[in-house]
Amino acid sequence: MKILKIFVRRDDFQKIEDAWSFAISIIVFNTVIISFWRQFYYTFIGSNVFWKFIEMNVAFSMYLFLLCGLVAMRSGIQRAISFPLVTLPYIFTPIYALMLSWLNLPRGLAFTIAFIHSLLLSSKHDPVILSVRIFAYSQLFLVVRHWL
């Protein structure tokens, strides 16, 4: 029950300062890709899907390192260690997509809901970090809107 509180209460979310947060973000990213595997496969049809999967993981890791470096420069090392946990709400993306399809709404909004959920959990909205996150989300949404 303690783990579920971090999805709702910002204070509990900010208290997590463990080094395992980066591993959790990679697990969340891979869970989202596997849950949308058919769409991922159709996006990269005609190429080696395994290598594209690895390339996506490398690109996501570089994105996290960039954000963690920005957070470390702006807010300190302790915040940078826990920053990758802002990707945690994306674990609910397949559930959001299913619920939106039941309501006859565009399933692509599932990523928007998860993005807004992660913005609400982050404590400080530093303009530089927020602009990098919004740019990355807009690039993700350009691909995802064709998936769903």
Rank of each mutant, 00 (worst) to 15 (best):
V71Y: 03
I24L: 08
S131E: 00
I113G: 11
V143I: 15
N104L: 08
Q14F: 06
W37D: 09
F44L: 12
D12L: 01
I91H: 13
L103K: 12
I33P: 06
V143S: 15
M99L: 11
Q139A: 15
S122L: 09
L142N: 12
I27W: 07
L119M: 07
L64N: 07
K15Q: 02
S35H: 07
S123N: 10
L105N: 12
F36Q: 01
L130S: 11
F53Y: 14
T112L: 03
W102K: 12
F40P: 05
I45W: 11
L70G: 02
I113A: 14
G69R: 01
S21Q: 00
I134K: 01
S138P: 03
Y137C: 07
F115P: 02
L105F: 13
A23W: 04
F92A: 14
D18P: 03
V143G: 13
L85V: 09
K52M: 15
A114T: 07
Q139H: 15
I54V: 14
R133I: 06
I77V: 10
F53K: 02
F135P: 03
F141N: 13
Q39R: 11
T31H: 05
N48Y: 12
L88S: 11
V128M: 11
S131L: 00
L88T: 11
H125W: 11
A110W: 10
R38A: 08
L70Y: 00
V143D: 12
G76K: 01
Q39S: 12
T112R: 00
M99N: 12
L142T: 10
M56R: 10
M73E: 00
H146L: 13
L85I: 10
S138N: 08
N30I: 03
S21W: 00
A97W: 15
W102L: 06
A97Y: 15
I33E: 05
F141A: 06
F13P: 11
V71K: 01
L142R: 13
V86S: 06
K124L: 12
R133Y: 05
S122E: 13
G46L: 12
S82H: 00
A23D: 04
P89W: 04
I54P: 01
D11C: 05
C68L: 01
F7A: 10
S101R: 15
F92H: 09
L130I: 02
I3F: 07
L66D: 05
S122K: 10
S118D: 09
S21D: 02
T43P: 08
E55I: 07
P89H: 00
I129Q: 09
I113S: 12
Q39M: 10
K2E: 12
L103F: 11
S138Q: 09
P84V: 00
K2M: 10
T112Q: 04
S118M: 13
R38P: 05
T43R: 14
D126I: 07
G108N: 06
L100E: 14
T93H: 13
P89G: 00
S21R: 00
A59G: 12
F60V: 04
Y63T: 08
P106I: 02
Q14A: 10
N57K: 08
N48H: 15
E17Y: 00
P89Y: 00
T43K: 13
W37H: 14
Y41D: 13
W147A: 13
F111K: 04
V132N: 02
I95V: 14
